[in-house]
Simulated assay, not measured.
Amino acid sequence: MAKDMETLSACPLDRVWSAGHFGGPDATGVTLRRSFAGSLVQLSLFPGQQEKALAKLKKPGITALPDDGTAHFGTPHSSYALGGGRYLLESAAANLEQKLQAAIVADIGSVTDLSSARTILILAGPDVETVLSKGVAMDFNAQSFPIGTVAQTTAHHMPLMMVRSKADEFRLFAFSSYAQSTLHWLETACHDHGFERL
């Protein structure tokens, strides 16, 4: 059973990931790396329950929830507002789901563990906006898509959540079943710019 759980929790990119410089010029236009969250949990609140939920969430260390389409970056938890009372919570701690299950009772909302259902990729560098524009029909200019913006979109017909975490850095949350295809799309888009896989 332990071996089965280890297999389920393994990153789907483990077999295809190798570090190095790839693509066009010797210069590096973007870097690509993976991020491993201790927990990734979706919190879904029923209408009108946010105030009650925030009172309950103080115990597991969550004191605020961001507005729709925005992110709150913190330690040990970061939160991303997906809209409609849904939030994706990312934590370095492995037991966030258990803490939220204990805090959020059934008449307030629900808690779903997505730790194995999402793969997180971090794309950064001076060419990051150009690279993303090759597969996502959005304006990535910093005025239109400032730091802390959250968007649920598609890249080459694959579902993807994107968060601008720094001026030249995006966090990409891919469905784990699409992780290898998402990586292939990114590397193809990065090729002409030269990219470093870390």
Rank of each mutant, 00 (worst) to 15 (best):
I62A: 02
R86L: 04
D139R: 12
L89A: 01
S144N: 13
T119G: 05
T153V: 15
T63K: 15
T75F: 09
Y87K: 05
M158N: 13
R171H: 13
L121K: 02
T63V: 14
I108N: 00
S115F: 03
S115V: 05
G84C: 09
V41T: 12
S39P: 07
P159F: 08
R118I: 08
A71Q: 01
M158P: 05
G135H: 06
A53L: 04
T149R: 14
G48N: 12
L65I: 10
V105G: 10
L89E: 01
D68C: 05
T75D: 11
I62R: 03
E90R: 12
F36V: 15
D127S: 12
H77P: 01
S133D: 06
N95R: 13
Q42D: 10
D113M: 08
V163P: 00
L57H: 02
I108R: 00
P60W: 04
P66I: 04
A103Q: 05
T119M: 03
L32S: 06
S91L: 10
L45D: 03
P66K: 07
I104N: 01
G125S: 05
V136P: 01
D168N: 14
P76K: 07
L100W: 01
I120Q: 06
P47V: 06
F145V: 03
A142H: 10
S35W: 12
F145G: 02
L45Q: 04
G84M: 08
K166S: 14
L54Y: 09
A167H: 13
G109T: 04
I120C: 07
K99I: 02
G148T: 04
F140G: 00
I108M: 10
R34I: 11
A102H: 07
A155D: 06
T75M: 09
P60D: 07
R171Q: 14
T112I: 15
L40H: 03
V128N: 02
Q101Y: 04
S144E: 10
G148F: 02
Q49T: 15
F73T: 04
K58C: 08
G109Y: 00
T149N: 10
K166R: 15
S78M: 05
P159L: 08
P146W: 08
L54H: 08
K58R: 13
A92V: 14
L96E: 02
K52C: 11
S115R: 13
Q143I: 07
A137W: 11
F46P: 00
H157E: 15
V131L: 11
L40S: 12
A151E: 11
T149H: 13
H72F: 07
A174L: 15
K59T: 13
G109N: 01
N95Q: 14
L172K: 04
L114C: 13
M161Y: 02
S35G: 10
S44P: 03
G69R: 00
E51K: 15
T119E: 05
S79I: 07
K99C: 12
